[in-house]
Design a binder for these strands. Structure first.
Lengths: 377, 377
DNA sequence: CTGTTAGCGCATTCAT
DNA sequence: ATGAATGCGCTAACAG
């Protein structure tokens, strides 16, 4: 590996001159520039990123903590969003996965910090608000994803889950439905579950529809759970013309349970899932669902992280400018525009993916419907 | 950020002593060790990884080039396999995505090399064998995934796709099927397509079943393609009791086309997909399919990369040992066991995931079957 | 066992 | 505009 020294020798200049042409930090006479360029070319010179990092005190790396890249497409999409922003900014991405385990998340963040990442994008589920606040005191800018940490709201990019659920229920209401069941997760204390339930309540409220606890059916949040939840709903004989589900897996199970009971979707019962899993597009009928704008979340988080970083660089620049004799620090600092993010910019509302599993409320159909009379076989 | 110097001052020792306790490279008297430890604790000292990397000429990072983390679960699973190996080895993972674009793949590899990664795991689709061979001449160990590069076979971890297809067809043959259709991709020149077709041929051959070109139906490799392929097969009126598909999406489309034609799966027609997509488990009947052992591939690739690295470190060690006065280099080099990989270790055979879409061949059913008489409506 | 010293490759200041 | 010299934080050779 050729070094700056080799280049300087070949180009018959000092290493400082070489450094100058690399960084375009100061004027160098055209002929020397050319000589240096040629030498770099000939030697296939690449600056040693560690030496640069050591002296510049920055690594040009953005650290990302994810849950598990394999836990569905979620993190993969987030990563894509992050990359979309980081790579054009000429920085690298280092990923670590915390698997939602407390110690692993903690260690990973420490490791990322140790690597002197310029900024961190963190998706933490296992660490407490207090711990995150502690971590955020670090010198390096940290941004949190999918979480709203108190006192750090301007560092949090999150998705308003409850609004997503509200949108789904509203959609059904607009189609004329009033008896809207909720196929819910039985992990009731989970924040996600609470948020969704909130959304469900709010939509009903706003439409002046009274909440009926009989329409809520709890089960484990997977396909079987959805299946069972519908069975239990049918047994209750409560009558409903539509449902929203906690997630797509439950919705799929619910639809298949309805089909088995000869209840057609969407003719007799409209269905809406949540998450926009791939499956939703493959089953019949294609499932209307609610989509997290995950990629956008990733992009925004990355942008925010970059901006906090840029802002700090500016601060540091101003500081030095005051204290020292006015030098051309702009060049060294390579100052970037910093844009302001409002609370609204950092908050995402899931959108409805309209497919085939919702039909308008139809009095005639309901009269004939098997839903009410159906008993579990 | 505290430095080694701060620690040495606080502990009243020299920086070398501190360095020694950090790296456990030489014996240090217990009392000093304790003092240093305490000082490190107090100052919350973390060695600067760049300074270390600069002087050690290694980064403790493994670079990974993937296609696109979002292109399905493929790369995510591969990453998990890689992480399973790299993290316990106390190294980091840097990922870049090449998106299967020639220039992007090339740039990403260069960037990874520039970062002085200790080793690279590369999944390249867009670069030519020649380019990969060129790249592999680099000082840093490079391992290729899902590709068999000529002359670099011992650096390639790959999946024997054609054997996977063979297994699938064999499974059907063992169930007594003889008229086995192949729902194939129309991208016939694609290497993947060729491999699968090979497997199909081989299985038939070994079972003494004559290849019938009428049983092969080409279409675009997605759900609709599978749908159309079945339609076209039915129009041909050739008669078949089972099919294998190029991928799961096609299989799903094919199954839905059969259902629409009142042909039941698996009673009248057995079906096998390929890839083990999540969907396969969600449709009715659950789809028997062929699974790439992607995670294992990732693990093996990572292990191989690590081993090549360890082997080089050993070489370098031996070299220095000869030339120089016998010092305790083992400590610096921290030599690792290097295990041999045989060709077989690097080659993976996909396995069959048996689900509900395959039934034994049944003469009686076939007599009644609508398959032969069916025409496109 | 331990402290002193000399780089690793680069950016930057200080002279010129 | 340019070269010489200094130091970033650390490891390792050298000399006690």
């Amino acid at each position: 590996m050729a070094t700056i020294k080799d280049v300087s020798r070949l180009a018959n200049v000092s290493i400082s001159t070489v450094s100058r042409v690399i960084n375009k930090s100061l004027k160098v006479s055209p002929d020397k520039v050319e000589a240096v360029m040629k030498a770099m070319e000939d030697l296939n010179f690449q600056p040693n990123s560690f030496a640069q990092a050591l002296v510049n005190k920055k690594s040009n790396c953005i650290g990302v903590l994810v849950g598990d890249l394999c836990g569905g497409p979620f993190f993969a999409q987030m990563m894509r969003g992050i990359e979309n922003v980081i790579l054009p900014a000429n920085k690298f991405v280092i990923v670590m996965s915390g698997k939602h385990e407390h110690d692993r998340e903690k260690n990973s963040i420490e490791a990322l910090l140790l690597r002197r990442c310029d900024a961190l994008v963190v998706h933490s589920k296992a660490l407490s608000d207090q711990e995150l606040i502690e971590i955020a005191r670090s010198d390096v800018p940290i941004v949190f994803v999918n979480r709203l940490v108190p006192t750090l709201e301007d560092r949090c990019v999150w998705v308003d889950i409850s609004s997503g659920m509200e949108t789904a229920v509203n959609h059904l209401i607009k189609q004329g439905h009033k008896r809207i069941a909720y196929i819910a997760s039985d992990e009731v204390n989970n924040q996600d579950a609470k948020d969704r339930m909130d959304g469900y309540h709010r939509a009903l409220n706003n439409a002046g529809i009274e909440f009926d606890n009989d329409l809520v059916s709890l089960a484990f949040p997977d396909e079987n759970g959805g299946h069972n939840a519908i069975e239990s709903l049918l047994m209750r004989d409560v009558g409903f013309t539509a449902f929203v589900a906690y997630n797509d897996a439950m919705a799929v199970g619910a639809v298949s349970a309805l089909t088995e009971n000869n209840i057609s979707v969407p003719e007799e019962v409209s269905a809406i899932g949540f998450d926009n899993n791939l499956i939703t597009n493959y089953i019949k009928p294609k499932l209307t669902t609610v989509r997290y704008p995950i990629e956008e979340v990733g992009e925004t988080a990355a942008k925010l992280a970059l901006n906090v970083l840029y802002a700090r660089e500016r601060e540091e620049y101003e500081e030095r400018k005051e204290k020292e004799t006015n030098k051309s620090y702009e060049k060294k600092f390579d100052l970037h525009e910093v844009v302001e993010f409002t609370r609204e910019d950092l908050k995402f509302i899931p959108d409805l993916i309209v497919r085939d599993s919702v039909a308008p409320y139809d009095e005639a159909v309901v009269r004939e419907s098997k839903v009410k009379k159906q008993k579990k076989k």
